[in-house]
Design a protein around this nucleic acid. Structure first.
Lengths: 126, 126
DNA sequence: GCTTGCTTTAGAGCGCGCTCTAAACCTTAA
DNA sequence: TTAAGGTTTAGAGCGCGCTCTAAAGCAAGC
């Protein structure tokens, strides 16, 4: 079994989050029980890494910090919260679907406007 | 020809933007040449309305205020900027495409996690 | 003429999500 | 043993995009 550990800087490079942000996430409860080495430096595990990467997906799909904190709290309470976590994710999934269809509608309107501009350009340069 | 005019409150109700926000948008240059009645009250036209609605689409697709201001500046310079406006929108359209595919990727990861939770629920309640 | 409710302005305030600072401590190489 | 560069903490600061306040003016109904 591989038990890799990573420094805060390595995690920063792998995730694109700054070291400042990683400490901030820990402070507000998005990351819990990050272990420390003998001199008090944070040691991130592969499990920590994939959790951070999942947090980033939640963020990128528009889940606010408060929602992510709620999810992290459930996770830190162990297996008994699996159903609540599933429900939370299902509800978020529905929001992402809505988001995507809104985006597609707006995309259509933008594309329509591009076509209008093209027509206007032809009319001005016949 | 119908030349409807609308009060700031009516526009607020039609667009979902607050009156405060509408004045703010004017101050920063997103809205230009909004006409006034005899007592100095703003009178929005149908053209103003549809411009505001398009601005909202740009915002909802992630274009920042600075980008929208740039677009509004081109628009206020008249027909000679049609090509620049088309290019700006084409570049934004590409960003929206990228945004949507990122969202679809993240959606997939969320759905996978939901499935994992379902399996865990079955394992705990066999 | 008074009240109610709309509108105006300039400018202050705010919530979110970081981002940075300062001062101290640790590690490694020269 | 010293210098360079990584890490720690508490807490301050910041940029974005609004959001609200205060004081005044205007409109319409009683």
């Amino acid at each position: 079994m591989t038990t890799n550990t990573y420094s805060i800087q390595q995690i920063s490079e792998m995730t694109g989050l700054s070291a400042h942000t990683l400490r901030y996430y820990e402070k507000i409860g998005l990351l819990t029980e990050i272990s420390r080495d003998l001199s008090g430096y944070r040691q991130y595990s592969d499990k920590d890494l994939s959790w951070i990467q999942f947090l980033i997906r939640l963020q990128e799909t528009g889940m606010k910090i408060s929602g992510r904190v709620r999810f992290a709290e459930l996770r830190s309470q162990g297996e008994s919260t699996i159903s609540s976590r599933r429900e939370l994710l299902e509800s978020h999934r529905d929001e992402v679907h809505a988001q995507i269809s809104k985006l597609l509608q707006n995309l259509k309107a933008i594309e329509d406007k591009i076509e209008i501009y093209k027509t206007m350009e032809l009319d001005r340069n016949p």
